[in-house]
């Protein structure tokens, strides 16, 4: 792995990993790691979505729960 010290290892089920390797290959990713990182980045956007925060903030302001 490149960037030693900047990566961490994550344990996942062996069978799941085998499926990930296959799909990553078919989808054209250079490595399974690259595929997993891409999927996680996309998933994280759901939690860190700024539009989501913006809409919630507008709702809460209207309801009088934030300044």
């Amino acid at each position: 792995m490149f960037g030693f010290g900047k990566n961490v290892s994550v344990k996942i089920d062996k069978d799941l990993y085998a499926r990930v390797v296959k799909v990553a290959d078919v989808a054209g990713y250079a490595t399974a790691d690259e595929f997993i990182a891409h999927v996680l980045e996309k998933e994280m956007l759901h939690f860190e979505d700024s539009k989501s925060d913006e809409d919630i903030r507008a709702k809460l302001k209207g309801l009088g729960y934030i300044s």
Partner: peptide, 19 residues
Amino acid sequence: RQETGGTADDKAMTEHYLN
């Protein structure tokens, strides 16, 4: 309160709240 609370509809807000 005669407020709108933004433009997002209930479907979008449900998704936002779940996240």
